[in-house]
């Protein structure tokens, strides 16, 4: 159970996030939506302890900051230097760094975990490739494997569906379903609108404050969208029906 209470983030003389409250049960997959600059990535980074924040964030009653290794994170693709000289195998092995502890080399158990994660994302055969030599979807699967190999309880994804192929999407959705069945909590940042949002148990609509927190159907209303995206949306909406009205 993830509980977030009165979370606020102050960034460069302004509130990037203000008084965010929500809870996520284990086994729940939650989508995080909102316009650019709404604070989606900021919320994820605050939960990861990468930004100073006010308020509280707990997982099963214990502060997130005290159990950071139980949170797996898949960053946005743009955050990574894909020319870095490292193989797919070693990227996934990074997930074991914290659990292995200082001065310890990867042991047999760590290698088994990494192998299982790579096999699950169908990338074991390409494990010796340098990451830059993989396609965008394959790179995303490597980071997914890294998240799996961390054996976390809370999974945070920053725009995982951006620029990937059908196969990767299918593998990713399969893994999300398995993680839910295992009672893990998933928080997924999304910037595209559409029917795909119906796959989430709940949506959080964010624009500096939390505007809506409900089932996808209840959140994707024209009123909510206008509140999040502002007046600019109106002319477009009159001309064509919005894709998310299903």
């Amino acid at each position: 159970m993830l509980e977030v209470e009165r979370l606020s983030v102050h960034y460069r003389d302004a509130w990037a996030l203000e008084n965010i409250n929500f809870a996520a049960a284990s086994g729940e997959m939650i989508g995080l939506i909102g316009p650019n600059g709404a604070g989606k990535s900021t919320l994820i980074k605050a939960l990861l302890g990468l930004l100073p924040m006010q308020g509280e964030a707990t997982l099963n009653g214990i502060s997130l900051r005290q159990q950071r290794h139980r949170i797996a994170y898949v960053p946005q693709r743009s955050q990574i230097d894909w020319d870095y000289p490292v193989t797919a195998w070693n990227v996934v092995m990074m997930a074991r760094t914290a659990s292995l502890g200082w001065f310890r080399k990867p042991n047999c158990q760590a290698e088994q975990i990494v192998q299982a994660a790579l096999e699950r994302v169908e990338m074991f055969d390409l494990r010796q490739r340098q990451i830059g030599q993989l396609s965008g979807g394959q790179q995303q699967r490597i980071f997914l494997a890294r998240a799996l190999a961390q054996q976390a309880d809370l999974f945070l994804f920053d725009e995982p569906f951006t620029g990937i192929d059908k196969k990767t999407e299918a593998i990713m959705l399969g893994i999300f379903a398995e993680l839910r069945a295992q009672g893990k909590t998933l928080l997924i940042c999304n910037h595209e609108w559409g029917k795909a949002l119906n796959r989430y148990d709940r949506l959080l609509l964010l624009n500096r404050v939390l505007l809506a927190d409900d089932t996808p159907k209840a959140v994707m209303t024209f009123d909510n969208i206008q509140r999040a995206y502002g007046e600019n949306l109106q002319p477009v909406a009159q001309q064509a029906e919005l894709p998310f009205f299903c």
Binding site: H69, I80, W102
Partner: peptide, 22 residues
């Protein structure tokens, strides 16, 4: 040699390394 795996993680993905608490 002693801190190789931490340095690899840090130089490859500083945000990720910070996120797991390094």
């Amino acid at each position: 040699k002693l801190f190789y795996k931490e340095l690899l993680f840090y130089t490859f993905d500083r945000t990720g390394a910070e996120a797991v608490g390094l």
